[in-house]
Design a protein around this nucleic acid. Structure first.
Lengths: 141, 141
DNA sequence: AATTTTTTGCAACGTTGTTGCAAAAGATTA
DNA sequence: TAATCTTTTGCAACAACGTTGCAAAAAATT
């Protein structure tokens, strides 16, 4: 794991630092998406808030993670698939927010259905966020 | 118009006040969605920030307006269709955010396509936000 | 018109996110 | 490995956004 995250950072031409390694590991260990606050808690105030903000920004720019739109106003992030490169996100999967546990998941195998727009509108990106009950919470409510 | 907004407020069992009338009129006059900040500017500091926040909350609860999920973390609101009642939103249309002018529109006639979820997941609501270039900006870039 | 209820505005506070700058850590070179 | 250069971090300060409690004002009710 240690090695995997270091390689990811190098591949993105980023200096391999403590905070970047730790934060990237959090994403690998999490099965859902993470918000800034989650990382702050996970790290136990090991890093400055500002460092976390900047690291997340950098990761988004480099195509390591992507942000997920949500109805409340907290930005959540999740790991990108391999196909994402710096400045070029191809995350065309559906996101799922569980109303019970609050977790956000990438449904990597559920692709965005086509949307028919009115005349004159041009689409660049489509985000689909489904909310409801996730698999785990459906079993143990 | 004056009459229409007053009626809407009464129908929702709300006191008819200056701020509520004005803020509701803003929504009727706007062709896109409005954020808290937009209303603050439109009203020219006529109302306190807090009043605007509370009015928006109340309108959402009463089913007069609904909030729109966005990729950045600003909450935007738009008028509901007639079918919405207090505590029961049925806004199953697609939202469009223009990358050029920044406006957010409800595409009331574009319905949400069905999404096939993995086993064990139950859907309660689906939000679709398309970003790109709107009709106006496509004509006058 | 008087009373009750609701709403508003103010003040204060908390969270979230950003920017500039010096110190520290990482990368690079010899 | 040490010296140098580059990048990143942490701190301080700031700005935007949003919430809560409470007294005054406005709306509804009688």
């Amino acid at each position: 794991m240690e090695k995997v995250v270091a390689d990811t950072l190098k591949r993105s031409q980023l200096s391999v630092t403590d905070s970047r390694k730790r934060i990237l590991e959090f994403f690998h260990h999490s099965d859902g998406a993470l918000a800034h606050g989650d990382i702050e808690k996970l790290s136990g105030d090991q890093f400055d808030r500002v460092t976390i903000y900047r690291t997340l920004q950098t990761f988004v720019e480099k195509g390591i993670i992507h942000s997920i739109p949500t109805a409340d106003n907290s930005i959540r992030y999740a790991l990108c698939q391999q196909e994402c490169e710096a400045g070029h996100h191809h995350d065309n999967h559906v996101h799922f927010v569980c109303d019970s546990c609050g977790n956000t998941f990438c449904l990597n195998h559920v692709t965005i259905p086509p949307v028919q727009l009115p005349e004159g509108f041009t689409s660049k990106q489509t985000d689909v966020v489904v909310s409801g009950i996730c698999k785990k919470c459906g079993i143990n409510p």
